[in-house]
Write a protein that binds this DNA or RNA. Sequence first.
RNA 1: GGGGGAUUAGCUCAGUUGGCUAGAGCACUUGCUUGACAUGCAAGGGGUCACAGGUUCAAGUCCUGUAUCUCCCA
Length: 892
Amino acid sequence: MEKRYDPKLIEQKWYDFWTQNGTFHGDSSAGGDPYCIMIPPPNVTGILHMGHALNNTIQDILVRWRKMQGRNVVWMPGTDHAGIATQNVVERALRNEGKSREDLGRDAFIDRVWEWKEEYGSTITRQLRSLGCACDWERERFTMDEGLSDAVTEVFVRLFEKGLIYRAHYIINWCPRCHTALSDEESEHQDLDAHLYYIRYPVLDAQGNADGHIVVATTRPETLLGDVAVAVNPNDDRYADLDSKQIMLPVLNRQLQVIRDEFVDPEFGTGIVKVTPAHDPNDFEMGQRHDLTPINVMNGNGTMNEEAGPYNGIDRFECRKKIMAQLEDEGLVEKVEPHKHAVGHCYRCDTVVEPRLSPQWFVKMQPLAEPAIEAVNSGKVEFVPGRWTKVYLEWMENIRDWCISRQIWWGHRIPIFYCDACDHVWASKTQPESCPECNETKIRQDEDVLDTWFSSWLWPFSTFGWPQNTDDLKFYYPTHDLVTASEIIFFWVARMIMAGYEFIGDIPFQTVYIHGTVRDDTGRKMSKSLGNSIDPLSIIEEFSADALRFSLMMITATGQDVFLSNDKFEIGRNFGTKIWNAARFMQMHTEKTDIPCRFDRELTCNPERLAPDDIYILSRLDKAIAVCNENLQKYRFNDVAHELYEFIWHQFCDWYVEYAKDVLYGDDADRRAQVLGVMHHVFSQAMRLLHPVMPFITEELWHAMQYGDADDSIMLADWPSTQEKLPGVDLDEKLVRYVDDKHDLIRMGRALKSDYNIQAATETNYVLKPATEEATQLIQADINALKSALRAGSITIDTDASPRGMASAVGRLGTMYMDLAGVIDLDAERQRLSEQINKLSADIQRADKKLGNENFVTRAPADVVERQKALRAEMAEKHDKLQQQVATLSQA
RNA sequence: GGGGGAUUAGCUCAGUUGGCUAGAGCACUUGCUUGACAUGCAAGGGGUCACAGGUUCAAGUCCUGUAUCUCCCA
């Protein structure tokens, strides 16, 4: 083994090994107990960021753990075609060539997008590989694949024929830059510091003479060009006489209707609002209630249209400025106030979304939502952490229809056909030759494509070949865990549950694990525009993929947001180095012997000759296994990481390996074999426990230690279980407790040296007065281990010891004296002991107070009271002994 | 406006059904080129658990309110 661990080559090597050996592939015909995870398909234009790294590390942990448990595992990978984002990317490239998509035409443009996809579309899946993801790449899918596209068409036609897909002229979110409709979820609200403009609308009396004005408050003055009415609350008696007046629209001098509608908040502005049904969703609804005809004053690109009169052709924001200037000139501006309000932004390009009245296709969601609500209410689908249940239900119970049409070219074209002859509109899975009603051949397909999520919501079954009822679908569906971030609950999770019920009649997955958002160390979301992203690939380059993964798990509390900075990844790197060196140590000693290394398969040891420290580490291993198992089941990955860190670093390396040195450098060949046997057994189990989190280094060491055959993988090794007791080995509780106490004793002995400024390497002499007969025997049998741990010159066991002039410390096993060769500072030692005594006195008092409380003794559970009593007794004993020490000192 | 989360050591965070003397990593102090590892070892210091009430034998933990930060929805 190399002295330094060099992860780069090793990680590449093992990833190739796994993929070449089909380690990640699952096969339904092999049967067994299925376990399936669907990757949240990343955007095909995407590059790996820390959110992906966190998301996929968690999935990989689950997948590798289940695989080792012997489940028939599939982790389904793939990407989505990201209609708007991908089209944007390709259009940008075209623009650099001085062309537009219209120049190319639809078919040529789509060819061009496919070319782009072939060339650049595998960036993120390649990056997932360097993270170590055990995806079943043979199954990789893309939402525009033939099979998945077939599923999309099938679903559209079914829903259309069921009456759940309809076309309507409705106000939707429109991105003027991407030039398409968006769903409500794709319009992200951001609070903006803006203004509330108070504008005077002239009033004429019944005779048509000027009669003052009314004041309306608006955040968007440019839309007044599309006003058709003003509205007041019916209970607002300030404006009772408004009906007898004519309200005139400034600029265009159009007479406006006056309507009364409950929607108007009398507290907002002046209590009068302008009504612009074509440019505001609330106004649109008011318009419908009052039978108003909307006037659209804008073009699709965000400029004003001919309805805007003098402002025709001007950009909407420019128009706002100009119109305010004109109103100012005409004395029609009452005042302008600062105003904070939420404004929708396009989730793909961050342009301010424009509410736009246009014909679009919608899915009627309420009927689909009902079983999906029930699935979560009944616990068939479970959110972890559970608080997300409420978020999901809240959205589902107030679900709104889903706008699925997009005015772009890249995507699944809507399978709707129109007959110009008879106006028949129908959906068809195949390209029809003629109108089914009138047989006319002059038919045309809808120009729009579907929302990308309209294919993503089918992902859990379309990837398995649905609508065909394939063997894979039957075997792996419903899948088990879905791992994603909270941002995607509405976009994707909720819709998948609805699709699962609607098209398969069953849930798509059992558990939805929602992890936190990755933030920078000041708590801001990582984003390209803020420039605060940490690139996972540069972290992998600098620290290794294992380090990235382990560090993320160490610092990511279940479901909480993660605050990251570069130096946090040192945790994982240092841990990897530690493990590497422990393995080197073991190999070094194993090479010197002729014993085989494969202790994990069969621990060939003589139980009679196992020392307390051997028993102890085996017992701690059992505990580590139990803790890991429990926390994996509970999706508490940071607890798993912490336990592995504690066990491998502190229990194994700090205590057991240190203990083992004495034996391994000693001359008892039989004991050497025992210790090496235990060591390899523990290490091989630890590597398995760690494998899901740090797959590369564990695979490397699995082979370096020859725990498996050359063509074997740790990923196929058995997952550790506490049930597998070692033959003939009794993990005697008494011995385990003894070693715990011995560790205390060692710490105390070292602290004595440290307190007296004696270098650790100086071989001082100790006298030990055991507390009990049992302790005497245990220590006597174990004296060499104690001696070497303390680097003692000698340890004299003396049950009657009462030495003078020595520094002392009291532990459960007994009292430890350190010989200071007559140079003890009595005052300092007295001081040292008094401090301990004082602290103990305070603790004893506190315990007495509790135990003296009648209510505590009678009402608290018996075991709590017992524990308190035992603790008190222990403290009192130690207290007495310390006082004796002080007394002995004084006699000197 | 509605809902969620957070507030514990200098920093980042654990602390699960209330029950030890509140823990970890990093940072800090002191000592150590000890035969796997200085990406390390050993020994330390450091906390009024945001604030105010309440429930309880017992509150970091449960309840109410307040403050600050943060996210989602409208």
